[in-house]
């Protein structure tokens, strides 16, 4: 079968598809998957500092406790959630009867994801939030 080259190019072609839940889930899953794999490399590299002793590791951890990195960590969790929750949906579709309720499943799982994202925001920034409200009480 000869694949014809599109005049618009790949990305415009994908963008032109009518997207329902599954289409969005497919794109989100791919983007988050690439981000998470790239992060995994960074994560393994960063943790290899453990072998260089306590001082080197503590200095690195102190860097990761800075607000910018905390925010990035929180953002990373959004990708983790999107990928994990949609992964559950994929497993249900492939191994279970998910095909019958995959659109609903996508909606519910994304709502769970948003709630979990906000809850994690509290856990990551709990010191800052507590400090903010400490002055009010």
């Amino acid at each position: 079968m000869k694949v014809e080259k599109t005049r618009e190019g790949y990305f415009k072609l994908v963008a032109s598809y009518k997207k329902e839940a599954g289409g969005w889930a497919w794109i989100i899953h791919r983007i988050s998957g690439i981000v998470l794999t790239a992060y995994l490399y960074v994560h393994i590299y960063a943790l290899s500092t453990l072998t260089k002793g306590k001082e080197a590791f503590d200095a690195e951890m102190a860097l990761f406790q800075k607000p910018l990195f905390k925010f990035l960590e929180w953002l990373l969790f959004a990708f983790v959630l999107a990928h994990t929750l949609n992964g559950i949906r994929i497993v249900l579709v492939d191994f279970g009867k998910g095909a019958y309720y995959q659109k609903k499943a996508f909606a519910y799982l994304m709502i769970i994801g948003i709630i979990a994202f906000l809850v994690m925001g509290y856990f990551i920034f709990s010191h800052e939030i507590n400090q903010m409200f400490a002055g009010l009480i």
Binding site: L47, L50, F57, D58, M61, V80, F123
Partner: peptide
């Protein structure tokens, strides 16, 4: 899920050199 609970139950858990 386990990794996240361990690492983020509080901002400090799981991240210290000794614990690692």
């Amino acid at each position: 899920v386990g990794h996240y609970i361990l690492m983020h139950y509080t901002p400090e858990t799981g991240h210290s050199y000794e614990q690692s």
